[in-house]
């Protein structure tokens, strides 16, 4: 299983440096989703790609130890529950599902737009986790197949 233990030292070093920057950029896109283009989905994809970088550079085994996969799975389904919780609170506070019941704040400010930044963060977590896990699971059953042979 040499091929799954990652790439060369150069790639590993660059990845080690760049992965946090990529995650930071993803967080920026998520947090500014209500002000600039992007938002939960775009930022989530960027974060998932940072994780995938690690998966490609360091291989399956290292990534499995670095990220706690069961925790990611819990986050993935938990974020959906949180989303629906926010939506359901809308019914109680403003009379309609997903209604925007927090004070909206003023235009162009980071803390504005009521529940929208909150939902963006939840969607970002969901997208990052599920996109990464899809690739992770697929990479896993490729290995299973090879082990059978």
């Amino acid at each position: 299983m040499k091929s799954h233990d990652g790439m060369t030292l150069i790639v590993k070093t660059v990845t080690r440096l760049s992965v946090w920057l990529i995650i930071l950029y993803g967080l920026y896109i998520i947090l500014h989703g209500h002000l600039t283009p992007g938002g939960g989905f775009g930022g989530g994809v960027v974060i998932a790609l940072a994780f995938l970088n690690v998966l490609l550079a360091f291989g399956h085994k290292f990534t499995g130890e670095w990220l706690k996969i069961p925790l990611l799975e819990k986050l993935e389904s938990g974020s959906t529950l949180l989303f629906m919780l926010v939506g359901l609170l809308g019914i109680f506070y403003a009379g309609s599902f997903l209604a925007n019941y927090i004070i909206k704040g003023s235009l162009y400010h980071l803390f504005s737009a009521g529940t929208i930044p909150l939902l963006n963060i939840i969607i970002g977590v969901k997208v990052a986790m599920s996109l990464f896990l899809v690739v992770w699971v697929m990479a896993a059953f490729k290995i299973e197949e090879e082990e059978e042979q």
């Binding site: 989905f41 697929m138 197949e145 059978e148």
Partner: peptide
């Protein structure tokens, strides 16, 4: 378009997973 991209992403992932299984 953003929504439909997400849906296509899902369906492509599902089809690829099925294709890998079929190959197996």
């Amino acid at each position: 378009v953003l929504t439909s991209i997400v849906i296509e992403l899902g369906i492509t992932a599902l089809l690829v997973a099925l294709a890998v299984r079929l190959y197996g």
